[in-house]
């Protein structure tokens, strides 16, 4: 199909949103580990906050994946 190569490249570019999610999740987890080692008794609350943050950070990667899939159907 004409232009399918460009669509494939666009789909692969959309997946680059994973970069931001990866950095965000790594940063949040390292800070959570730091916080727990500083105050082990607050582990439960920190866990709650971290999971919420991770889920929100991860959403961007998922939106990228979704757009990639939508583009993929056009190839």
């Amino acid at each position: 199909m004409e232009g399918s190569g460009a669509i494939a490249i666009a789909a692969s570019l959309a997946v680059l949103t994973g970069l931001g999610a990866g950095i965000g999740i790594g940063y949040a987890t390292s800070k959570a580990a730091e916080a727990v080692s500083r105050q082990p008794e607050a582990a439960g609350k920190i866990m709650t906050l971290t999971l919420t943050g991770l889920a929100l950070a991860e959403a961007t990667a998922i939106y990228g994946l979704l757009i990639a899939i939508l583009l993929f159907t056009k190839v």
């Binding site: 991860e58 998922i62 994946l65 979704l66 899939i69």
Partner: peptide, 12 residues
């Protein structure tokens, strides 16, 4: 966002 998170992760 709940839908997309679950669906996207499992599909991936």
């Amino acid at each position: 966002s709940l839908t997309l998170r679950l669906f996207g992760n499992i599909l991936a």
